[in-house]
């Protein structure tokens, strides 16, 4: 488990974005701005992803899709909102179909502003997401270990009480 945190996999989903931030995200994963040197890979499967990159605002049609993608990802996970449309709704905030930014549906950890967000800012956001993911993985491991200890204590208590019962 401790090796996973050093190479998290990234899932990128576009919910009502104009594509500017999407092609900058894809440009980050290609030569010149190569973000894969930090150990990440772009995957298409939410059940194997650790970091979720969201672009574009949330409208009534894709709210359910984004929620489903977030629920399908296993813990620990980190959500990054890229572009000003994903942060607050951007220039389309007053349109009739936009509910708001990504934080109306899922809890967002890192906000990357810009219209379109520049690759340098996106890589900064991804590196901070990797640090946060490593911290969360450590906490998650600790939680699993403590749960294991508590489970052992409970079974010991049950065995002791049943022995006492048998003796009595």
């Amino acid at each position: 488990m401790s090796m996973v945190k050093k190479s998290p996999w990234v899932l990128h989903y576009d919910g009502s974005s104009c594509n500017g931030c999407d092609i900058e995200v894809l440009a980050c994963l290609t030569p010149v701005y190569d973000a894969e040197r930090f150990g990440i890979i772009n995957t298409g499967d939410p059940m194997q992803a650790d970091i979720l990159l969201l672009t574009g605002g949330i409208n009534s049609q894709n709210q359910a899709v984004v929620k489903q993608l977030y629920d399908q990802m296993p813990r620990p996970k980190v959500v990054v909102a890229i572009g000003v449309c994903a942060c607050t709704g951007g220039v389309f905030k007053e349109c009739y179909n936009i509910i708001g930014g990504a934080d109306t549906t899922v809890p967002v950890d890192i906000y990357v502003p810009g219209c379109a967000a520049r690759p340098q800012a996106i890589i900064d956001g991804i590196v901070q997401a990797i640090d946060l993911f490593q911290k969360r993985s450590d906490e998650h491991e600790l939680l699993m270990k403590n749960k294991g200890k508590k489970a052992d204590l409970k079974t010991k208590e049950n065995n002791n009480s049943s022995d006492k019962g048998n003796e009595a």
Partner: peptide
């Protein structure tokens, strides 16, 4: 899914 309604 991407309908923002920017004509409004």
């Amino acid at each position: 899914f991407v309908h923002r309604g920017l004509e409004s």
